[in-house]
């Protein structure tokens, strides 16, 4: 690879805090890297661990989950579920040999546009360090 490796990251943001925070980054014209592409879910608790694996399987180099700060969940406790599931998944992925820097979780509130930009930068840096993700990709076998 001659050019510098640019990781592709899929982000799952909750509608009430982090998606609104990402919108605020836009409204305040806070520039960040285009590597992260956002999928809106109503709550970080909606994020099925399967989504993480699926994104990595599809070829994403990293995954980001972001929700409301603990205690601020619009649905009372969805972010706590998200955190527990994430911790388990994080360990499992590490166990099967996936660089733990590829999967990240953060709390970004609706007023933290600048923080969202930082989170993006951090996720990209980590995924860059981990290199292209091809461990889960189905390989063609030449008999």
């Amino acid at each position: 690879m001659s050019e510098e490796f640019e990781p592709n990251i899929v982000a799952f943001l909750c509608n009430w805090c982090s998606y609104a925070g990402a919108d605020l980054a836009g409204t305040s014209r806070t520039h960040y890297l285009p590597n992260v592409k956002i999928i809106r879910v109503m709550c970080s608790g909606r994020v099925n661990p399967l989504f993480l694996v699926n994104a990595l399987q599809q070829g994403a180099d990293g995954v980001l989950i972001s929700g409301c700060h603990p205690g601020d969940c619009h649905y009372l406790e969805g972010n706590y579920y998200a955190r527990r599931r994430f911790m388990l998944m994080h360990k499992l992925l590490e166990h099967v040999g996936v660089d733990p820097g590829r999967v990240n979780m953060s709390w970004v509130s609706a007023s933290e546009g600048a923080k969202f930009a930082d989170v993006v930068q951090e996720s990209v840096d980590k995924a860059k360090a981990a290199g292209p993700m091809d461990q889960f990709r189905r390989r063609q076998i030449n008999w």
Binding site: I39, C43, G45, N48, L50, A55, G78, R85
Partner: peptide, 30 residues
């Protein structure tokens, strides 16, 4: 909120407009 869907082992419960079958294609593209 969809917390139930992430907890469901068989995918039987799904939040409308944010079902697995609606999110997975998004992941496949992005």
């Amino acid at each position: 909120c969809g917390s139930c869907a992430a907890a469901c082992l068989s995918g039987a419960i799904q939040p409308k407009s944010f079902k697995d079958e609606q999110i997975l294609p998004q992941i496949a593209v992005l």
